[in-house]
C-alpha cells in the first residue's frame, strides 16, 4: 500500500516543504523592529492622568546602506510633541527610540509621549 502511494506522498511532502518555507519567508520577513530604549522621566511638578491629556510626537529617518548625516528626526519629534501642547506644560514624558528593520535599509524612529497639563489645572 505504502509502495503505491509513496511517490505521491513524497511529492506532497516536497511541495509541503516549499510551501512551508515560503510561508516562513513571508511571515518572518514581515515588519521586524528593534526597540533600543524606553526612558520615563519624572513627573515634577506632578499631575494625575485625568488632569491632562496624553499627547505624542514622532520623528522618523529612513536610512539606506547606513548612510546618515544627521539626527534631526529627534528634534523633529520634540517639536511635534510641543506643537501638540502649545500652551501647557509637558510632564511624565516617555521617550522611545526604535528601528524598523528592512532590506539593506531601515527607519529610525523616536516616539515621545507626555502628559500635557494646561496652566489652569495642577
Amino acid at each position: 500500500m505504502i509502495r503505491i502511494f509513496w511517490p505521491g506522498l513524497r511529492r506532497c511532502v516536497l511541495i509541503g516543504k516549499k510551501v512551508l518555507c515560503g510561508l516562513l519567508l513571508l511571515l518572518a520577513s514581515g515588519c521586524a523592529y528593534s526597540v533600543h530604549q524606553v526612558y520615563v522621566s519624572d513627573n515634577i511638578p506632578f499631575a494625575a492622568l485625568e488632569n491632562g491629556e496624553v499627547v505624542k510626537g514622532q520623528g522618523e529617518q529612513f536610512v539606506i546602506f547606513s548612510f546618515t548625516f544627521d539626527s534631526d528626526y529627534v528634534e523633529k519629534a520634540r517639536q511635534d510633541l510641543i506643537s501638540n501642547c502649545p500652551k501647557g506644560r509637558l510632564t511624565s514624558i516617555t521617550t522611545q527610540h526604535s528601528t524598523s528593520l528592512g532590506f539593506f535599509s531601515w527607519t529610525n524612529k523616536v516616539l515621545i509621549q507626555g502628559l500635557c497639563v494646561s496652566n489652569t489645572k495642577t
Binding site: S41, T68, F69, S71, V74, R89
Partner: peptide, 21 residues
C-alpha cells in the same frame, strides 16, 4: 568619503517641558 560623518543615535532622553518656552 561617502561614509564620512555617518551619524547614529545611541540614546535620547527628555525631561518635563515647561509651559514657557
Amino acid at each position: 568619503t561617502l561614509g564620512m560623518g555617518c551619524v547614529s543615535v545611541e540614546s535620547i532622553s527628555l525631561t518635563s517641558i515647561p509651559a514657557r518656552r
